[in-house]
Design a binder for these strands. Sequence first.
DNA 1: CGGATATGTTTTGCTCCGCACCAAATATAC
DNA 2: GTATATTTGGTGCGGAGCAAAACATATCCG
Lengths: 413, 413
Amino acid sequence: MDDARALAIPARADHSDVRRNNLELVLRHLNAVGSDSRAGIAARGRLTRATVSRLVGELIELGLVREAGRDGGGRPGRPGTRLELDGQHVLAVGAEVNVDYVSLLAIDFAGREVLRRRRAFDAMLAGPRASIAALAELCATAVDDLTARRRKRATIVAGLTVAIPGLVDVAAGVVANAPNLRWRDLPVAALVRQGLGLNRAPVQVGNDANLAAIAEYRIGVAAGTPNLVYITGEVGIGGGIIVGGQPLLGTSGYGGEIGHMSIDPEGPRCACGRRGCWEAYIGLNALMKHVRSNPPQGAPPEAKVEPVARRARAGDRDTLAVLEELGRRIGIGAANIANVVDPQVIILGGYFVDLAQWILPAAKQALAAGTIAPNAEGPRLITSTLGFAAAARGGAIDAMNAVMSNPTMLLAR
Amino acid sequence: MDDARALAIPARADHSDVRRNNLELVLRHLNAVGSDSRAGIAARGRLTRATVSRLVGELIELGLVREAGRDGGGRPGRPGTRLELDGQHVLAVGAEVNVDYVSLLAIDFAGREVLRRRRAFDAMLAGPRASIAALAELCATAVDDLTARRRKRATIVAGLTVAIPGLVDVAAGVVANAPNLRWRDLPVAALVRQGLGLNRAPVQVGNDANLAAIAEYRIGVAAGTPNLVYITGEVGIGGGIIVGGQPLLGTSGYGGEIGHMSIDPEGPRCACGRRGCWEAYIGLNALMKHVRSNPPQGAPPEAKVEPVARRARAGDRDTLAVLEELGRRIGIGAANIANVVDPQVIILGGYFVDLAQWILPAAKQALAAGTIAPNAEGPRLITSTLGFAAAARGGAIDAMNAVMSNPTMLLAR
DNA sequence: CGGATATGTTTTGCTCCGCACCAAATATAC
DNA sequence: GTATATTTGGTGCGGAGCAAAACATATCCG
């Protein structure tokens, strides 16, 4: 960021950009359709077969694509050779630090999960230094295991992205403020990079909701929807926004901080000191208060929510009323966001998923009522299917995206 | 929009894309710095002098760039030839239809205003058909005048963009719903294109706030700020959002419809039927009600606001209190938007400009209090300097942008 | 006036795409 | 079973367009 006030002047382009773009085209196409022949890629990508042949040759050389048998016949002509993404050589890792756990998820180049670990850990209690150490150790052993397990050929960890519930300056790799972890101005990327030792894999840091939104965009139920909003449901409420297929990071990476949107200036007091924040209505603590539940401090969100779901299943009228009101508040806030970014879908994650059946009707109604767009229904409101690993998976996907967008970066190790 | 659910696969690239990109690079650079030599462009754009020479040659051929004398000496070496954008041959037109006027503004390729017209017109009274006819006629005579005035060489009108206060499906060129004009599902682009006759200039339609935001991004006081929000202040409140230098249009072009954001579910009733919309607090009609002013129906916003400003200047305590409360409500809503998109600046337009000195202090305070981002100050809140022609100018700029981005499109006439 | 320096043009080489052609592999018609 | 049609994948050639280097041009300075 040399000058924030420079009109967008495109960067110089030359042959290598054409090549990079077309390599990406082949990879994204294979990622989208699973497998295809050279001729098929050429037809769908508006390239000539000759060019695709050359591109595929380079990608095979790089270990990113492999041949996978012949096309079954059935029609005249020489059968094609099926090509698919090669998961053997390049991996990416996503990690997540949250209030009571550190977790990690690795995927191969084809997007398949190859490793998942989770370790209970009280980040607040341990303090930033010990937390980072624990995180770095978890990552380091995982990277060792991953590279040891598959010796056939050099296995490269292409990148590591750490998801944090808080405000992150993505470009700098610094966590500016994560209240739930009590972290402030912590250079997480640099610290983890140190902890990993010599390994030169690029380490990045991201906001958990933004990364979960990336995961939803790439592999969730609404995958491919270019405009979507993901809403985390934990103690804090975070938002991740995809606009035109790109995450909306904002000026300093603080985009989508929707938890402290004001719903009502005279509303209840929020932990942040203000009044009427959305989070004060729909955060997990607000729900716990309204249903008069008092779960143990350290319990994971699933455990805190389960008793409420049980009461709702049993038909307890007070609980159902609380959940309906919760849904209504969700819908009101979702409508505000929808009026700003006009997404196709809004995805509820976190604890909302387990209570969806009692929340969604009222939420959908309030959303439709509050949306100005004359689309028959306005944005669809759905629940995430990615579970609590969404953010870590999004981190891994994000790291892998860098390779997909510029495959020859692997040549620089 | 073939398939809204296709993962973003880049389009094929070839040499022509390299060329297009680098032609754009030269034009944007000249637009940003005013004038420069070939060598200067090469140095700043990371191209070789040879390449810049060829690019400039083609742009001169196209009539988009011209030589403008020698560099003044002062240092050793051959002085360069200064190059600048050539405004003689290519023009673009922006028009605006609003409640009580139709206006038009034309710029040349260098961005200079060459024509401005405004005609009082009651669009609601006249109905859609007559309004479009009036608009088309205004545009047609303006285009005739523009092309007649400069006979030296063929003068091309590169495009025409019409700004509408309402929901616009940009891709389709259709106004979906403009309540203040009582337009619904009106194919404005097609109708204006017909009204223009043979002229093949591309006609587009856009939302007035989005286009004003484009104008702010390109030539306003915050020009070049890649993340900004523009807020119109009229009877209706609209929003235009620029994210990463691109307008946020949303799924169907309905992005930034912030006027009906809910500030308070129990708030005053809004014209849209809901309660507590932002517009119901900060729209022009709400202000008129609170200051107990009853201006004539047809008066332009400036005239409606002037008595209020007069009273404020005179120190009337009731008026000042109303304006302070107005500022506070502006700040609350602006903070909500800021938490979603994290812009560098939020720009107030329309009637807010004339009342800025009494509104801004409270608005800034409420904005800072409601913003979660730990930037020392959060987004800057400023007023527009573009006046009531902002939307039309944004339309013209938008049309010209298409040429800047792909100059050889002119060869297809 | 001659060197130093900077600009702009010309020449050469390289990359990478499209086009045309060819070999390979299979289905189908006879 | 053989010939033909059809489709895939690869190779050679030409063209577009950028980089690098050499060259011509214009000015300043000693």
